[in-house]
Design a protein around this nucleic acid. Structure first.
Lengths: 147, 147
DNA sequence: AAAGATTGAGTCTTCAATCTTT
DNA sequence: AAAGATTGAAGACTCAATCTTT
């Protein structure tokens, strides 16, 4: 099935790039104004907090966040240096590690959410009705499907 | 007007981040496999090609592309170093310049489009009906509105 | 003072190579 | 050989400071 690239597709592509960049810029600006770190830190801390006591292997976090291996490795370096997460030996597989969030990491994530949630509402919630937001989410999820 | 952050909004936000990252990664991977440069090069070349003989001032291109000034300055450095665009003196305002695309820039943009268009179709077109694509574009455009 | 544009230094990302364990 | 993870070097981005012209 080789469909010709049509106008509606190009419009959707362009709008996707623009809207995401703008929305992320608005949210990041709010975090920065509150002297808080970037979104990627929030994502990592939140995944680790959800994982709880058992923590996550780097490759699991990597997949959850859609990051490259080396990229995650460096993000964890920074989080660890700031005492937000810990790298622990992995008993099942001696190649690997287990990442766990520290109390300071939970605390920072909480402070970030206070700002982040308001920023999401401003960037998305205030611009769409509830129904529109649901429709948008459903359409975007269709784009995530493989391959 | 302080609306409570609702579930639909959060879902839309998360889907926006994920879908855009995935789609851009897919498209960039295709360009890279064809040994072609990044999307930002395409955008800049296309804006300059549309502008034609009169070219664009850096600040105009900057606004069209949603880039910071310093960021654009460096992108233009790279395009210029590769002989794709030229910086010309501006007669109206001696602080400024005029950017114009070169023949080599037009040629590269054409070669990029051959890959890029197929990649957009794969990342977006093949996953949505025509109607869905139109709906998605319309909803995303609502997110672009000020302030 | 404000607008157009650039730059040095620092941070983050990417590429390719590496190391260890499976 | 393949999977988990890291690293040096190079590329791109960000911040704050700078320079010129308006």
């Amino acid at each position: 099935m080789t469909k010709r690239l049509d106008d509606a597709t190009v419009e959707a592509w362009k709008a996707l790039l623009r809207a995401q960049r703008l929305a992320v810029a608005r949210v990041e600006a709010r975090l920065k104004a509150a002297k808080l770190p970037q979104l990627s830190w929030y994502d990592a801390l939140w995944e680790l907090e959800k994982a709880g006591e058992s923590g996550l292997r780097p490759f699991e976090l990597e997949r959850a966040m859609l990051l490259e291996q080396y990229n995650l490795s460096r993000l964890v370096d920074r989080l660890e240096k700031d005492g937000l997460v810990g790298r622990h030996a992995c008993s099942e597989d001696r190649r690997g590690q287990v990442l766990k969030i520290n109390p300071a990491g939970r605390e920072l994530r909480r402070r970030m959410w206070a700002i982040y949630s308001g920023a999401i509402d401003e960037a998305v919630g205030s611009r769409l009705t509830n129904t529109e937001a649901r429709t948008l989410a459903a359409l975007l999820k269709k784009l995530e499907q493989g391959p």
